[in-house]
Design a protein around this nucleic acid. Structure first.
Lengths: 346, 346
DNA sequence: CCTTTCCAGGAAAGCGCTTTCCGCCACACC
DNA sequence: GGTGTGGCGGAAAGCGCTTTCCTGGAAAGG
C-alpha cells in the first residue's frame, strides 16, 4: 500500500540519462533527443510504470489541462445536454473537465470560479441564466476579470452580460415566433408560466412571447403570468395557481420544457385534456421529453451543440475580442397545441 | 492582461514575515501564530488578492482536493442523477469534481483512471455497468490497483467486480419481483428488450426477470429477448424488431426506462396502444419520465441517493476492507401495465 | 588543418508552496 | 541567578517537473 510513485528522476537514473533528457523524451518538447537515448528512456519509463505528476507539471509549466464547467444543476436535462457537448469537445482536445454545480446560488458561482482560478484552469464554460442581481453580477464580473487577467479564457452559455465569448440562445426571438404561431392557430387568451422573475431567461422568453402576441394584435394580461421555479414542481405549482385564478386561457406557454411537463401533470389532475381543453407549449426541446404523449410543442434549442460551440470558443487560442454566437430556436408545433375548441376553460 | 498571480512570498514580504509564517496563517496548519502577525498576514493577503496556487500546494502536500467521477454519458438521466448526488456530497466536503465520460468505451475508462491518477485525485467514483470483457476488466483492475496503491480511494456504482467499495443496485431482485407482479396481473407471454449482451446490468436484469417468471411457472422464450443499446433509439429499434417477430406477447420489459420510452414510441407508431394492447415496464424510474402518459411502470432506484452513498463511501477515510452497499429497487406499477386484454397482439 | 557553426546532453535554477529543524526568547522553577 | 521548558518565528530543504544556459564534440566551411 501507498508505495511511492515513480518519478522522472528515477526513470532518468535507471536509463542513465539526465533529468532534462528524460523530460524531453517523455513530453513532446521542441528539442531533439537521439534515437538511442530516446528508446532507452521510453523503455525504462514503461518498465517502471512511470506516470508524470500533473501537479508538478502544472507548477513547472505554469499551465494545466483543466477546463471548468459551471452549471446550476447537472441532473437537469438542459444542463446535462450542454455538459455532454462541452465534455465531448474538451476530452477530444485532451483536456480534463472540472464540474461545478451552483444550485442556482450566485455566490457559489463566484466561489467556484475562484476555485478554478486557484487550480489555474485554462478555461471555464459558465452555463446558466444571468440574473438581475447587480451586486452578484459585479462580484462575478470581478472574478471573471481576475481569471482572464491571469490568462484564462471564459465562455458563457446564456445572456451576453460579460466581456467574454458567449453562446446566446435566441430566447426572445424564439418565444416571439412561438407566440405568433400559437396566435395563428386561433388562440386569443394566453397564459405564461414564467420562471423566477429575477432570471433573465424568464424575462426574455416572457418578453418575447408578449411581443409575439402584440404582433398578432393580442395582449397578455398580467394576471395570466404566473412565476415559479424552472423545475417540474415549479411548473406544476404555477399551473395550479393559474387554474385557481380561472382566467379562461386556451393556451399556456411554459418558459421551459420541464415546467411545461409539470403543468401538463397539473392540468391532468384537474381533469383538463391537453390539447383539447388547453394547449401547452414549452421551450428547449430537451431530449428525454421528445417522446412525450401528447408530444410537446416547444422551441428547439440545439443544447449539445451549444455546449460544443461554447467549448470550442473557449479552447480556441485565437483572437481576443469577445465573440458572440447567436443560436436560433426552431419552433416545433406538435400535439400539445391545437386550435382552441369552443371557449377555453383553463 | 496576464499579470502575474500574487504569491505567498509576496504576501510574506509585504507583511514583513517569513514565508513559513505566512503559510501557517493562510492554511490551518497545526502551529500557532501570534495574533499580531496573523492579522497582519491575513490583511495583507486580502489587500493583495492572494489566492493559493493549487498545483503548488498539491505538489508540496502530495495530496489534492480532486475527486474523479467517471460515467458513460452525462446526458443520460441515469448518470446525471447519480452525478448530482456525487457532486453534492463532494462539493459539500470542499472537494472538486473532475468529470470524465467514457462513451461506453472500456479503454477510455482506463485512460480516464490513469489521468486521474496523474492528477493525484484523492478518490474516484466509477459509475456504469461492468462488462463481460475479461481483458478490459483486467486492465481496469490494474489501474484501480495502481490508484489505490498510491493512496487513492475508489467506489463503484454497479456490480461488485473489484475489491473496492461498491454501491450495488438490486438488478436481479428488482427485475425478479417486477416479473412476479407482472405475471400476477395475468400476463403469460412476455418479451424483454435487453441491453447489449456483454453488459452485466442487462444480464442481471434479464436473468432476474426470467427467474421471476419461472417462479410464476412461466417461461421466457429466447425468441422474445431482443438486444439493443441502452438508449431511446436502442429501445425503439428493439421494439420494432420484436414486432417484426410477431411473437404475440402481452407484456414487454425493457431493461431500463430510456429503452422503455423508445419502445413505447415504436408501439405507438405501430398503432398499438399502451397498455390496452401491450403492457410495458422499465427499470430505474429516472426523474424526467415521472410524468409520462401513460405513466411508466418500473423499478425505482434512488439514483441521486446512490451517488451520494458512493461519494460518502469514497470520502470516508475509515476502514480498508471494501464495503458493499446493496440498494433495493422498488417495483412501481403504474398505468403502462395492466391486465392483458384478450389475446395479446404484439 | 584550423575555425565556425550547430546540436544534443546535462547542470542547475526555478515554479509556489509545505514542513522540518533550529534558534531565540520569555517564563517558571529551584 | 542559573537552568529547564515551551512556543513562536524563520531559514532552508524539498515536492517533481520544465527550461534556460552552458559545454563539448561533430560536422561544415575556408
Amino acid at each position: 500500500m501507498a508505495r511511492r510513485q515513480v518519478t522522472l528522476a528515477e526513470v532518468a537514473q535507471h536509463a542513465g540519462v539526465s533529468l532534462a533528457t528524460a523530460s524531453r523524451v517523455l513530453n513532446g518538447s521542441t528539442r531533439q533527443v537521439s534515437d538511442l537515448l530516446r528508446d532507452r528512456v521510453v523503455e525504462t519509463a514503461r518498465k517502471l510504470g512511470y506516470l508524470p505528476n500533473a501537479s508538478a507539471q502544472a507548477l513547472a509549466r505554469n499551465s494545466t489541462a483543466l477546463v471548468g464547467l459551471i452549471v446550476h444543476d447537472i441532473s437537469d436535462p438542459y444542463f446535462s445536454s450542454i455538459a455532454a457537448g462541452v465534455t465531448r469537445v474538451a476530452e477530444q482536445a485532451g483536456l480534463v473537465v472540472v464540474l461545478g454545480t451552483t444550485g442556482r446560488s450566485p455566490d457559489r458561482e463566484v466561489e467556484l470560479f475562484s476555485t478554478l482560478r486557484a487550480h489555474r484552469a485554462r478555461a471555464v464554460v459558465l452555463a446558466g441564466s444571468r440574473t438581475t442581481d447587480r451586486a452578484a453580477s459585479a462580484r462575478l464580473a470581478a472574478e471573471i476579470e481576475a481569471f482572464t487577467g491571469q490568462g484564462g479564457r471564459v465562455a458563457c452559455v446564456s445572456q451576453a452580460k460579460f466581456p467574454t465569448d458567449t453562446v446566446v440562445p435566441a430566447n426572445r426571438a424564439g418565444a416571439r415566433s412561438l407566440a405568433e404561431k400559437l396566435a395563428s392557430l386561433g388562440h386569443r387568451r394566453f397564459a405564461v408560466l414564467a420562471g423566477p422573475s429575477d432570471l433573465l431567461v424568464s424575462r426574455d422568453r416572457l418578453a418575447g412571447f408578449r411581443a409575439g402576441l402584440t404582433d398578432a394584435g393580442l395582449t397578455l394580461l398580467d394576471a395570466n403570468v404566473v412565476h415559479g421555479a424552472l423545475t417540474r414542481d415549479g411548473g406544476h405549482q404555477a399551473a395550479h395557481e393559474l387554474l385557481a385564478r380561472d382566467t379562461g386561457t386556451t393556451c399556456v406557454f411554459a418558459v421551459n420544457d420541464v415546467m411545461a411537463m409539470g403543468a401538463m401533470a397539473a392540468f391532468r389532475e384537474h381533469g383538463l385534456r391537453v390539447p383539447e381543453d388547453v394547449s401547452i407549449a414549452g421551450f428547449d426541446d430537451i431530449p428525454p421529453l421528445r417522446d412525450l404523449v401528447p408530444a410537446l410543442s416547444t422551441v428547439r434549442l440545439p443544447l449539445e451543440d451549444m455546449g460544443e460551440r461554447a467549448a470550442r470558443l473557449v479552447l480556441d487560442e485565437g483572437r481576443d475580442e469577445p465573440r458572440t454566437v447567436r443560436v436560433a430556436g426552431e419552433v416545433v408545433l406538435r400535439e400539445s397545441t391545437t386550435t382552441p375548441a369552443g371557449t377555453g376553460s383553463a
